[in-house]
Design a protein around this nucleic acid. Structure first.
Length: 110
DNA sequence: AATTTGACCCGTC
DNA sequence: AGACGGGCCAAAT
């Protein structure tokens, strides 16, 4: 399999992320058909060869932004996510798999 | 040609 | 919450 084809599949997977949604590097790789290749996703996003990708919708598996807190990229990504209605708290987005129960409503620090 | 460097991930402790 | 080891691997040194 040519490296070029793999890259294109991953680019497609990144483009497939809808506004207002997010995905981890690993998920993108898996969706493209290449599980375990999260690093390749990261490299492609940092590569100027593929401009205009919705890079801000890709996060670490922990749900946090991959850039150092306070960096320009960090701030830019936070802004873009917020513009799509995704709340970012302490560099971490609220993941959709979060379960709302009485305990967290009463005792959650936020 | 060998080594280091990343917008990473996962299980385990 | 964090640390550590192993996996991943194209590009840059």
């Amino acid at each position: 399999m040519g490296e070029k084809i793999i890259k294109q599949k991953i680019v497609d997977a990144i483009r497939a992320i809808q506004a207002g949604d997010v995905q981890s590097y690993g998920q993108v790789a898996a969706n493209a058909g290449y599980p375990g290749r999260a690093r390749l996703v990261a490299r492609i996003l940092s590569d100027s060869e593929y401009p205009d990708l919705p890079w801000h919708r890709v996060l670490r598996s922990s749900g946090c932004i991959a850039f150092p807190a306070g960096s320009d990229m960090f701030d830019e990504q936070s802004r873009r996510l917020l513009a799509e209605g995704i709340v970012v708290t302490r560099g971490r987005v609220k993941l959709p798999d979060r379960i709302v129960d009485m305990d967290s409503l009463l005792w959650a620090p936020d």
